[in-house]
Design a protein around this nucleic acid. Structure first.
Lengths: 192, 192
DNA sequence: CAATCCCCTTGACATAAGTCAATGCTTTTT
DNA sequence: AAAAAGCATTGACTTATGTCAAGGGGATTG
């Protein structure tokens, strides 16, 4: 249940077994069934969730009822509404499970205590934040500089397995396209 | 010359005068004339730059020669190609001055020494990174969920002074639009 | 096993954004 | 002061994407 988390952790920062036990103490396992919410817009985001197994999505819903997927989180990823988590403000995103999930939750108080007590945890989260920042930077660059068909190509290159696990209309939403448009883009790509 | 930097610093983390002097020691003042490069694509990014005065832009150029502005940096902002800075890889962005600038540069070695020696600096950069991450998160959300005219409105609300200081075609580039399109969007907005 | 739901595709049409070209206004350069 | 360069606007047209509506296939549920 904790394997993947500490595997990912150790890829960034070396820790002893004692340190691992200390950190493990703060992690709260949780299972989530397909379609269940981890977080709903309007509620404060109380946890950072690490995905041991399964797949989640983070998305907002606009006035017209359209969903806009902001992020996918497969195994090994971390997901939360960071702004809400840090400030206590109501969340502006929903997070729910696309597949049955096994998660490790870190509460706000656990997070704060860990930052104070474990320099390794602090380093780890710093590197994680840096990585997330850089990934998002690349994503913005792709959005502002690539047309729809190339955006799709770059996504498939980056997450080849995601397309097998996620319905196509969610991929479309992630790319900021309508399902019909994505379908047509795919047809063009396939036929060339 | 260092006023704004430490003003911004102190808004996030309290420091003593001794700590300020210690940190100041690592900052390298530099002036940049309008249109001069701070960083060119292909070169490694050697510095994080804090803007004491003036205005810069970070942008990439695609195969068709179109510029895509990724970020503006007015007074009080920090700018660099963070990926290149951290990894030593060649930069994928250009950074140049839109106005005459006064900068404070932090080299890679200075950055690393500061992280080790000054917990306050670590906290400061951590908060800064978090802030930048959240800002980018909002930006992506705006891009994937707002049409062009509302994107423009939200930008003008966020950076009202930027529109006075930056040529319109750069604003267009930042929003992922062509100058002609932005001009038409503006006309519609003005006439309504 | 049938009924339902979800998802993808397709067509016809509407709207938004991009392209190309021309013009006039400023600002900068010489 | 004249020439050049940069910038914003506009028109006519093309291309990309969205909208609405219909239909079919496959999975899920009762």
């Amino acid at each position: 249940m904790y394997d993947l988390f500490f595997k990912c952790f150790r890829e960034k920062v070396a820790i002893s077994n004692e340190e691992e036990m200390q950190i493990r103490h703060y992690l709260m396992p949780k299972k989530l069934r397909k379609k269940q919410y981890l977080l709903q817009e309007g509620d404060p985001c109380k946890y950072i969730a690490f995905v041991e197994k399964g797949l989640l999505r983070e998305y907002s819903v606009d006035e017209s009822g359209n969903e806009h997927i902001f992020q996918f989180a497969p195994e090994g990823w971390t997901i939360s509404d960071l702004f809400s988590f840090l400030t206590g403000e109501p969340a502006t995103y929903n997070i729910d499970a696309i597949e049955d999930c096994e998660l490790l939750l870190i509460s706000k108080s656990a997070h704060e205590e860990l930052l104070l007590q474990s320099p390794k945890y602090e380093t780890y989260t710093r590197l994680q934040l840096t990585g997330a920042y850089l990934a998002m930077q690349k994503r913005i660059t792709a959005i502002i500089s690539l047309p729809a068909n190339e955006r799709y190509a770059s996504l498939t290159a980056l997450y080849p397995d995601l397309l097998q696990r996620v319905p196509q209309h969610m991929i479309a939403s992630y790319m900021g396209l309508k399902p019909e448009t994505l379908s047509r883009v795919r047809r063009k790509i396939a036929g060339s």
